[in-house]
Structure formats: C-alpha cells, structure tokens
Design a protein around this nucleic acid. Sequence first.
DNA 1: TGACAAAAGTTAGACATCTAACTATAATGT
DNA 2: ACATTATAGTTAGATGTCTAACTTTTGTCA
Lengths: 151, 151
Amino acid sequence: MKHDAVMLMGRIHDLTQKWLRGELVAAGLSGIVPSHGDVLALLFMKGEATMHELAAFSHRTRPTTTVLVDKLEEAGLVRRMQSEDDARSVVVVLTAEGEALRGSFAVISKKLASRVYSPLSKDEGEMLEKLLNKVLSNLEAAKDAESAKSD
Amino acid sequence: MKHDAVMLMGRIHDLTQKWLRGELVAAGLSGIVPSHGDVLALLFMKGEATMHELAAFSHRTRPTTTVLVDKLEEAGLVRRMQSEDDARSVVVVLTAEGEALRGSFAVISKKLASRVYSPLSKDEGEMLEKLLNKVLSNLEAAKDAESAKSD
DNA sequence: TGACAAAAGTTAGACATCTAACTATAATGT
DNA sequence: ACATTATAGTTAGATGTCTAACTTTTGTCA
C-alpha cells in the first residue's frame, strides 16, 4: 500500500477538468468552465434555482456563484429574476439559448464518464464508487465533528 | 452505477486540500500551501532539484513553480543557486530552516493518509489504489494519444 | 563554424476561487 | 412591536494557477 490515493485523485481531477475545458471550447462555449457546467446542470434538472441552491449544488461559495451566474448571464444562457416569495432571493432560470445546450452537456457528460470508466469492468466501477463514497462520507463526518468542536 | 466517480474525487480532493491548508497554518506555516509541500517533498527526498524537476514532480507549470519557490525563498526555507553544469539552470536547495520542517511534514502526511484510509480495510485500501491507478493510466494514455494526433 | 531550433527560467496578464465585509430583507424572542 | 439575529446576495481584495511571450544558454546540423 503506497498511501498515495490522494495524489492519484488529485491527478485524475486535474486531468478530467482540463479535458472538460477542452470539450467546452470545442462545443463553442469558450469562457464557460466546468463550474458553469455544474450551475447549468442543476437548472437542467430543476428548471430554476436560487443563488443559494446553486452554490450548494456546485460546492462553491456564494460569491463564486455570483461571478459564475454573472458570466452565464452575459453569455445569454440564464436570466436572474426576483423571487416572489422572498425579496432577498434571486431566482435563476435558463433562457432559450441555455436550454438549447442541454443536449451538448449530456453528450459531454457521457463522454467524460466513458473516459474514466472505460478501463474498469462493471464490478470494478461499482467497487470504485463504493470506496470513494466511504472515503468521502468519512471525511465529511470528520469535518463536521471538527467544526462542531469549535462552538 | 451512478457514474459519479469524478464528482466524488473532486469533492475528496477539495476537502483534503482544505484540511491540509488548515494543518499547515496550525504548524505555524501560514502562507505555505499544499503545492509548496510538493516542492519541499522532492527536496526532502533528493536534497536539491532544478526548477524543471520541481515543476514536473509537483505537476505544476514552470511559471507556477517560479512563484512557489519565490515564496519558499522569502520564507527562508530554500535557496536558489546557479547550476555548475548548465548556466540556464537554477538549483534549489533546502536551508537549515527548511530541513527542520522535515519532521512536521512527515507527521502531516501520515495524518492525511490515516484520514483518508481510516474507513477502509487493508484490502479495500489496496483495491482503491489499484483502481485509481488503472483510471489514471488510462487518462494519461488517452491524453498522450490526443496530443500526438495534433502533430 | 555559424545559423537556427530547443530548453531553462522568468515576467506579464488573465481567470477561478476564496474570505471578509457590506446591504437588504426576513425571522425571532421578549 | 421592536430590537436583535440570521439569511440572501453582492462587492472588494487576495491568492494560486494558467498561457503566452521574452531572455539567455545549449544543442544541432549543414
């Protein structure tokens, strides 16, 4: 056991992010980065979302999400609207142009999965997901325990 | 199979990096980030290294490595020297203060490994490394094939 | 041997992300 | 009911990283 799983995951993460950027450029979406993809992904699923929801889903901070949505809005892919329930909230929705990208994103997403899973058998793929989930749950639990300690 | 291994690895990567930053601050090394740790790690192993070697080892670009070494030099942990073999090359070496950190880094590195591997059995840990190596090798091969294509 | 290509390193400029601080609105508790 | 606290979002400033362009030295080959 080399205890190098963290390094391996870091490398894989770097390579997949870099590949994704290339795919987005190839799809004519220059200026759009993987994080924008996360924002769009939630909108494809839910139709609309608040900034808060987008931040939570994409695992970015709210300031970062502000910038991400700014860019998507400039690119004409989403629109900000006032919430009717809560005057503090902003609701983000897809424009027609944004909606039109649903297919391209599905294709890229499939290509990404195939790229990563292709060297693995079905059993190995499932095993990998299981192990990663175990590790992640444990890290999140440890983090929660530590932040609770400082109360 | 949810095909979410990439997302899981991204999350794990984020959490471990964040935890590492906290550990470095706790060790009195504010301003030192994980990438600096990679640079120091090679110096702990080899004693000295060129900028080029440090960049390759830490998987960062040479400009980034310049900045990393600038900071380590300001912090008094390393020193730049002219290479005797090649007038273009810079050789980076540890100072006494840098050498003194060897122990702290070993401790943090052990803590990190234990943090990640603790929810896994020995077999599971080995399996995880095996699967990650398979995925990474495949991604690197694909990348090489694609960059060769554009010749 | 002399021109041209390759390599080592740095500098400059751009970008995604973060934390801290701020504004505005909603919720709570006495 | 009003003061306090919490929440939604943005702005400002800092940081780590990248690509592109530049300088200097080394290697190549005709």
